[in-house]
Each structure stands twice: as structure tokens, then as C-alpha cells.
Computed example of a mutant assay.
Amino acid sequence: MEKANNIVLIGFMGVGKGALAREMVRQDSSLYALDTDDMIESLTNTRIKKIFERAGEAAFRALEQKTADWLAQNVENAVVSTGGGFFKVNNLERIGTIVYLKADFDWIYKRILNAPNAKKKLKKRPLFQDVGKAEKLFEERFEAYEKVADIVLDVTETDTEEMAKRVLENVKVKNAGKS
């Protein structure tokens, strides 16, 4: 099946995928933003944290796959911000152009801690409750993110507005090369 005309933002939790998606839509009104975690919460009428507590990570990953299947079949012209583990779905490449937002762990952690609603941001990330475990998970994932990505962009020291411009330009160049 052909790749959908979407931009899929992947990267570690807290790297800024949701904020970037919203800024990209602000800059390009032909796009709209979707967040896979929000979609799962809407589907289940349950917060992500509660899904992890009640059903476990495997059940959550199955919901991610269900969401990926729906996105690949039904969505065009969207910027899709994903949860940190969403890159593992088996049809990611069919959803759209995959952009890995790369940053080191310390930068991500400081970004979350310096957010105006830092406690809330940390609380809603079940896998970030133990910083040592989160850092270990980051180390396990960062090479895997690069392997599945069509485009890798370092987001450190770049504001959201500039990063949105960079992503939109890179995706345009990449897609122009396919024609």
C-alpha cells in the first residue's frame, strides 16, 4: 500500500512533538494536527496513565497499533504527533513521512521540568515516573528511532517556530525527490 500524505513526528516522550505539530498547522493551514495519545484516550475514554495501571503496557501498545491501522487507512494531510513508543507499530511507514525529533535525554528532561505545568507533564507520562528507568529506555530507543525515520532533525537549541519551518521544508524536499 502507498504511503499516506501525512507527517508523522516520532521521538522520546517530552521532546515536543505535540507542540511542534500545532505550530506546523499554524504555519500551514492545509494540514491538521492529530495526537495518537489523545486519540487513544478518546477511543477508550481513559487516560493513558490509567490504561497502563489497569491493563498494562502490552494493552496500550495494542491500542497504538489499532490507532496506526486507522490512521494509515483514513487520514491524509495531517501532522501526527505520536507517543514515545508509537514508532514500534508495524505499519508506521504507511502513515506518512516519518520525522524523528532528536535530542539528548538531559535536554528533554530539563524541557519537561521547565514547562509551566511541569508536575502535570511528568505525571501524565507513566514511563517517566522513575527518571533512571526513563533514561535507560531513552538509551534503548534512540537508535531505533533513527532506523525508522525518513528524516532526522536535532531539536535542541531550536525554538518551535523555527523547527516547524525546518520540518515542513525537509518534508517538502524529501517528497519532491520521490516524483
Rank of each mutant, 00 (worst) to 15 (best):
M1Y: 11
K3D: 09
N5W: 08
N5D: 13
N6S: 06
I7S: 09
I7W: 03
I7T: 09
I10T: 07
F12P: 10
F12A: 07
M13G: 07
V15N: 11
V15G: 10
G16Q: 10
K17T: 04
L20E: 08
L20R: 07
A21R: 03
R22Q: 15
V25P: 01
S29Q: 12
S30Y: 11
D38R: 10
M39C: 10
I40D: 00
N45T: 09
N45R: 13
K49P: 06
G56W: 12
A59K: 00
R61T: 04
E64M: 01
Q65S: 09
Q65C: 07
A68T: 03
W70Q: 12
L71Q: 00
A72L: 04
A72C: 04
A72G: 03
Q73P: 11
N74E: 12
N74P: 03
V75I: 13
N77S: 14
A78K: 01
A78Y: 02
V79Y: 00
V80P: 01
S81T: 04
S81K: 05
T82N: 03
G83I: 03
F87T: 04
E93V: 08
I95F: 01
G96F: 00
K102L: 06
D104K: 13
W107C: 13
W107R: 14
I108D: 01
I108R: 04
K110M: 10
I112C: 11
L122N: 05
K123S: 06
K123R: 07
K123L: 06
R125A: 12
R125F: 09
P126K: 00
P126R: 00
P126T: 01
L127G: 08
F128M: 15
F128I: 09
Q129S: 14
V131P: 12
G132A: 14
G132L: 13
K133W: 08
K133T: 13
E135H: 15
K136V: 10
L137P: 01
E140L: 15
R141Q: 10
F142A: 05
E143M: 15
A144Q: 15
Y145S: 06
Y145D: 05
E146L: 09
E146A: 15
K147D: 07
K147V: 05
V148D: 05
V148A: 10
A149Q: 05
D150Y: 07
V152R: 13
L153T: 02
D154M: 11
T156D: 08
E157H: 14
E161N: 13
E161C: 08
E162P: 05
A164P: 08
K165R: 14
R166H: 12
E169I: 08
K172D: 10
K174F: 15
S179G: 11
